[in-house]
Design a binder for these strands. Structure first.
Lengths: 333, 333
DNA sequence: GTGAAAGCGCTAACAG
DNA sequence: CTGTTAGCGCTTTCAC
């Protein structure tokens, strides 16, 4: 592998000059610049990232810490992050944490060891606490999906309370009154959505039914199990709201298993407009999150912060959209 | 940040000894080993990855190069890779190539610059050609999903010909005779599946209809457009096989738009058992690929190769499973 | 068994 | 404007 010294010799300059040319520093004669670039070309020189990293304590890698790449929400986010990164000459390191605070910590440590340039992180509530008195915040970081007002970090989120309020109100508007809600337990997101849900009930003068409000892990099987219990109870809900698509698919399976008809027997609405939301019948009414935009914005903010660590923190709240389809449209309710 | 020198001083040994202890080299007195470990603990020392990388020309990062993380097939693969990597102390660098040979090359170059320990790669046909006379194969590499018999690399695949044969035969067995096939154009995978499709027709003495055999990009919209054309033609197919789930969802949308009933008017079968395959009605008959296992196997093979570069190459062919649901079950055909 | 010392390839003072 | 030089933190001969 050809190194900077080879280039320097071939171009008849010092390594320092080569380095200057390559990092577009000023104070280099145009002619020298040109000659060096030519040699770089002809020798096919590519700087050694490890050496750059060691010397400058920073790599061209940004990390994406999410709970699970198999969650459709994060797929789109990660795709966006990748796109921005690639464009700007960064690579993306992926870490799944399964909403496990222990893994989150291991991961963060590792990223520091790797000198990553920055981190895009979707933390558990637990991790948000830990972050406060850790040195992890020394890494450029933007938190996504989860709300962290108390922390001094860049933040890209949606308005979860409002979105949950909207979708619950939609159900209420169609006459559904016995609405159950299933929310993820690991994240602030689940909490916020629950709050929006509660507020909507309150504003419509519907007393909440405790047994209908569920916190659970946010996987498909949790949605299924929770829904089965709900549907087998004496007092059934006639509508269910879920706080993500994994839960929704579990609930849908449970509804099918219970031989109930959507939306006549029961309505279903969820967060996240996945591929399948429009494919099932009746198609699912959902809150669409601007997933790609979340990732895109986060990545751009991160890179800006990397370039200017002193930059003031900001919180970006992106808009969601209620997509009305047929899963909540029964006339009789 | 505490470095190896700090540890050496605190333990009253040389940096060389600390290094030996940390990499579990022999020839260190047990007592010294213990003392060093204690100091490492108490000081919270963590080796600098960049320095290790520079010195030893290899990082603890493995790369995953896939065409698109938004393709469900790769999600599961990447999850598996991540799991194995994490377990073995590696991190995963993610690269999307969009089946674009140019991007593949950029990516490969970058990975070499980063001194990644190894690469798991799902290449385009183009890239497979390029690989032959490139030096990229100097990196430990395992190729997944795509077939590369000519190359001297580790390879994890399924039997695409056979799987396509199986699912096509299933359709044929249910009396469908006018079967269209939509295959991805960028990969060897699409080719092989087309071949299995053709063979099944032949073995059942069904003359293939040229207009029913389509190569296209493998995204949802391509599936939609292709299917729309197929369905609007004078001579319609009464069954469609697609070579991945993205195409399948496009086709499904087209069928819905055309107001046709599955499986009575038209049958649909596809590769890839996604979340939604069991959620739509009628549920989709599919070839299930062992996606997680593909990723898992590939990651393990890669790590073995990293540890022993002289290891002989091997090809692992994993089994697929035909999951029969209701999308191909019409009696009248 | 252990230490001293030589770099890996690069960047950033500091000189000139 | 450009070269010299001193490391970044680690691993790995080579001595002892």
């Amino acid at each position: 592998m050809v190194n900077i010294k080879d280039v320097a010799e071939a171009a008849g300059v010092s390594t320092a000059t080569v380095s200057r040319v390559l990092s577009n520093k000023p104070r280099v004669r145009a002619e020298v610049h040109k000659r060096v670039m030519e040699v770089v070309q002809s020798l096919g020189y590519r700087p050694n990232r490890a050496a750059q990293n060691l010397r400058s304590n920073s790599s061209k890698i940004i990390a994406l810490i999410i709970s699970d790449i198999e969650n459709p929400f994060f797929q789109s986010v990660s795709r966006a992050v990748e796109d921005v990164a690639q464009e700007q000459g960064y690579s993306v390191l992926l870490c799944n944490t399964d909403e496990n605070p222990e893994k989150e910590k291991i991961c963060l440590n590792l990223l520091r060891d790797e000198n990553v340039a920055g981190v895009i992180f979707s933390p558990t509530r637990q991790a948000i606490e830990n972050l406060t008195d850790s040195s992890f915040l020394e890494m450029p970081m933007v938190i996504i999906d989860r709300h962290v007002s108390k922390l001094d970090v860049d933040n890209v989120v949606i308005d979860n309370v409002k979105s949950a309020y909207t979708i619950t109100s939609h159900l209420l508007g169609h006459g559904y009154k016995r609405i159950a809600g299933i929310f993820g337990i690991g994240s602030t997101t689940g909490h916020d959505r629950r709050e929006g849900f509660m507020r909507a009930l309150k504003d419509h003068n519907i007393p909440p039914i405790n047994d209908f409000i569920k916190y659970t892990n946010a996987r498909e099987e949790d949605g299924f199990n929770t829904a089965m219990k709900l549907l087998q109870a004496k007092e059934r809900p006639n509508a269910i709201v879920t706080s993500n698509s994994l839960l929704a698919s579990g609930v849908l399976l449970a509804i099918r298993e219970s031989q109930m008809a959507i939306p006549d027997d029961i309505a279903l609405a969820s967060f996240d407009d996945t591929t399948w939301a429009k494919l099932v019948e009746p198609a699912l009414t959902v809150i669409e999150q601007p997933t790609y935009e979340i990732g895109h914005t986060a990545a751009e903010m991160l890179i800006k912060r990397i370039q200017d660590p002193a930059r003031s923190n900001r919180e970006v709240v992106l808009n969601t959209k209620l997509i009305i389809r047929q899963s909540c449209g029964c006339k009789k309710h």
